[in-house]
Design a protein around this nucleic acid. Structure first.
Length: 209
DNA sequence: ATATCGATTATCT
DNA sequence: GATAATCGATATG
């Protein structure tokens, strides 16, 4: 049993949304019900609307980032380093630009499909990390592109890409600085489930909170 | 196990 | 023209 999150869940400060998104489930619907992709959210980063120079919304509205200024609970997908897509979900009430970046997932169902999308072979349980540990990897595993997914409503299962609650409770949450940014690099806005093996990075460094 | 580096393009200055 | 919320390959200890 998995229920979609409500719009009001996302109409809040991205730090609050980040903390509560840990343990929820990202769902990509498929024609074959057995091929539906689901994975637990184990690592995210908060990007604030104002006073956060690392956030795409901080310099104001542009063609690329307009989803951030729209209603909460919608997918913001952008292309980075000429190679990868990154998935975010918009937060805050309409008009404010906060969002949460999905950084790592723990695969639950549809693992075969994820492996095919990533073009990797799973031989041992450790190989599962290759599927969804990292923002570019999880986007590839879920077939996420800007054309297909930017602006879709992630509170609605009919959109095919949505976020649900299956009743799971994460035990312990850690904070650390965000990864891969140069501006505001010291701020601790990365949220992860302590000890989860699918958290991204070689050494899954984190400070206790 | 950690460090460094190249790929490749949309976006903004 | 420079940069970027990354990844995978290669080099080195």
């Amino acid at each position: 049993m998995i229920r979609p999150l409500l719009r009001e869940f996302f109409a809040r400060d991205p730090r609050k949304v980040s903390r509560e998104l840990l343990g929820k489930v990202l769902v990509r619907a498929s024609q074959d019900r057995d091929a539906t992709l689901t994975a637990r959210i184990v690592e995210v980063e908060a990007y604030l609307g104002e006073n956060d120079p690392a956030a795409h919304g901080s310099a104001g509205r542009t063609l690329r980032n307009e989803v951030l200024f729209g209603p909460p609970g919608h997918a913001y997908v952008y292309f980075i380093y000429g190679n990868h897509y990154c998935l975010n979900v918009s937060c805050e009430p309409e008009g404010q630009a906060g969002c949460v970046l999905f950084r790592a997932l723990e695969p639950l169902t549809g693992i075969e499909g994820m492996a095919q999308a990533r073009a990797v072979t799973i031989r041992t349980p450790r190989d599962l990390r290759q599927l969804t540990s990292g923002p570019g990897r999880l986007a590839e595993a879920f077939g996420i592109t800007r054309i297909r997914d930017n602006g879709c409503d992630m509170t609605s299962p009919s959109s095919g890409l949505w976020i649900g609650n299956d009743g799971y409770r994460s035990r312990r949450i850690c904070l650390s600085p965000r990864i891969g940014i140069t501006k505001a690099a010291e701020r601790k806005l990365r949220y992860l489930i302590a000890g989860n093996p699918f958290v991204s990075g070689p050494k899954r460094l984190a400070a206790q909170v």
